[in-house]
Amino acid sequence: MSEIILQTHELKKVYGKQVAVDGIDLKVERGSIYGLIGKNGAGKTTTLKMISGLAKPTSGSFSLFGKTGSELADVRGRVSCLIEEPGLYPNMTAFENLKAKCLCYGVKGDAYIKELLERVGLANVGKKKAGHFSLGMKQRLGIAMAMVGEPDLLILDEPINGLDPEGIVEIRDTLTQFSKEKGVTILISSHILEELSKVATHYGIMSKGRLVEQLTAEELADRCSLRIEAVVDRPEIAGTVLERLGITNYKVVDKETINISERLEDVAQINRALNEAGVLVSKIMVNNESLESFFLTTTAD
């Protein structure tokens, strides 16, 4: 089993009376790209703020690189982050913004800054001030700033926000390359599972401050793979029929569609049982569940 570099234990954050993060336990393996997914307000950003040292947990704890409590201070420098919108000085150029971060981290060399700018596709911005950048350019510069000093753990909060499709592909490739070449572990949040699925090796799904599920990319692929989709005229009766057949893993999606996630080989038998019970089946087939549908199902109330 790979080394766990980040582990939270009952991590909780309360703002006033509002519980933003409600006792989450997540594990991140070294070298992985961990996608933290959840709807807006699920608690992703607050979780990332706590892990990156910007906010203090109300209760619970977490370990980074095996260090916990007061020892965390020793490894804080190995973590870098981009939380919410990039923090840039608008009257400074991309180069100058990066230079400031490099000075802070004790990283020397203008060539390194140029390499970073190239890596995020900002090599040709010249003396243009960051304040005049488009949202996508700011986001790229924010990612470059987070990469300064080659951190061991890179925390990115919704990094593809505001990027055009081409930019999304570029950043995705950059992150994958960065992870593979430098062995960097990336913790990345998004509310778009479809996008995360193209880079993430592990997932944590958050809803209402809780971590409702953790799974690997393989497990997600399995979960989103096959199911029986049946279009019927009376789904409530169909449900009773399915239960009589011993099928419990089914979901009434709308007033005429039922998804069945078990006994996929028994399509014919299920069809016959439904017909015999007087349920009119207009369509029945083995189908794939979309990632979006999986996400909505998992985070449903």
Partner: peptide
């Protein structure tokens, strides 16, 4: 300035003290 621009997020968490 670093609070108003958000730059504090770039380095604040990494500070040992």
């Amino acid at each position: 300035a670093d609070f108003s621009t958000g730059d504090i997020k770039n380095y604040g968490g990494a500070m040992k003290h």
